[in-house]
Simulated scan of single mutants.
Amino acid sequence: MASIKKFQVTFDCAEPRRVARFWCEVLGYVIPDPPEGCATWEEYDATRPPEERGAWAACVDPEGAGPRLYFQRVPEGKTVKNRVHLDVRVGTGLVGEERLAVLEAECARLVELGAVRVRLLLADEENESCISMQDIEGNEFCLD
């Protein structure tokens, strides 16, 4: 049996398009083109039943290397900590003050986009420093 190499990460959320746009800004991803026959996603939505309009969105790595992110509307809000989260790797290979400076700069950029800084986790014997954050709907992620 062949191993699977492609996967997508799915987010439950209230506003799929808004959350997709946020993650496009975070990761440098793009919203894919609408289905064939539709010039825009709004035009596509107009073909759907009212209850299905805006029910989902996606974003993709323009280089095709990273996983597709899929955002689906759910009726309930987030109530507990995520069991899975993304680590946004902005400090790879950096240590000490240089790493902290890169993490802090990216944190400031993401806060401007609506993210929330939760806490700085300083390096210990096993791990480098990282910043725990939440996206615009409260989903946890780390700047690593």
Rank of each mutant, 00 (worst) to 15 (best):
E97W: 11
Y44F: 15
E106Y: 15
E43A: 14
R109V: 09
G93H: 12
P50G: 06
G91I: 11
E52T: 05
G96Q: 04
E112V: 07
E106C: 14
G93I: 10
T79D: 04
P62N: 12
R99G: 00
V60Y: 08
V74Y: 11
L103Q: 08
E52R: 06
E63F: 15
P49S: 07
E63A: 13
G64I: 13
E112N: 13
E51L: 09
L100M: 11
D45V: 09
E42K: 05
A46R: 12
R73D: 03
G54I: 13
W41T: 03
V88N: 04
G77T: 03
E51T: 05
G64F: 15
V95G: 00
R73N: 02
Y70W: 15
V60K: 08
A57Y: 14
G66D: 14
E63T: 13
V80W: 10
G96A: 02
A105R: 15
D87N: 05
E76C: 02
R53C: 05
V88R: 03
V102Q: 11
Q72C: 03
P49R: 13
P49F: 11
T92P: 00
R73W: 04
E51G: 00
C59G: 00
E106A: 09
E98I: 07
V84A: 12
A55H: 07
A57N: 09
G66F: 15
C59P: 00
A46C: 03
G96F: 02
V60T: 06
W56Y: 15
L110W: 06
L94R: 11
V84W: 14
V90G: 01
V95H: 11
D87L: 04
W41L: 01
G54C: 11
P62H: 07
Y44T: 03
P75I: 00
P75N: 03
D61H: 09
E63V: 06
E112P: 02
C59E: 01
T79R: 15
V84R: 09
D87V: 02
G91D: 11
E43I: 02
V102C: 00
Y44I: 08
P75V: 04
L113A: 07
E76R: 09
